[in-house]
């Protein structure tokens, strides 16, 4: 990410070290990743060791050093979704996108990741595509959704 943009985000948070999570969130949202260069620059601006910034970026699952997709697919692995068949939904997602959990498609359109619970336990299995959550999924339903998404965004296999 360009240094100017990072500088603007850090200034918005008044160079407060405590706001680093919010800073990382904003950079991750815009850039879809936290590049080493960005982490170094944040450390420099906040006057803290790079190791600390790197530590945070790898400790918290919301952040990623590698590029996430334009559409971030988050699969709920909460106990309720698990009991109600999340595994078959996960398998369908993995095979349709040819991805493992934590990976991104070559064209950076989609990334797949697991979250521990989306808090929608009565209507699972759930998968969130960015801010849109699809409830009550099974193999057929998720495959239909993926087909529609592929058509809308161009092929991404």
């Amino acid at each position: 990410m360009e240094r100017e943009k990072i500088k603007r985000i850090v200034s918005k948070h008044r160079h407060e070290k405590a706001a680093i999570l919010a800073i990382l969130h904003e950079i991750q949202e815009e850039d879809k990743q936290l590049e080493t260069e960005s982490l170094n620059y944040i450390a420099q601006l906040l006057k803290i060791p790079v190791a600390n910034v790197y530590g945070l970026a790898t400790f918290y699952s919301a952040f990623s050093l590698g590029k996430k997709g334009d559409t971030k697919i988050r699969v709920c692995s909460g106990i309720s979704c698990h009991i109600n068949g999340a595994d078959e939904v996960n398998e369908a997602l993995k095979s349709k996108f040819n991805l493992e959990m934590g990976e991104t498609t070559w064209d950076e359109k989609f990334s797949l990741e697991k979250v521990h619970c989306l808090g929608l336990c009565s209507i699972g299995p759930n998968v969130a595509f960015n801010l849109v959550t699809y409830p009550k999924l099974n193999k057929e339903r998720i495959e239909t959704i993926i087909e529609i998404l592929h058509k809308r965004t161009g092929d991404s296999k």
């Binding site: 909460g78 521990h116 808090g119």
Partner: peptide
């Protein structure tokens, strides 16, 4: 609210 299965706080 991190306990998987909890959504009361939400």
């Amino acid at each position: 609210e991190g306990d998987p299965g909890a959504f009361k706080d939400r």
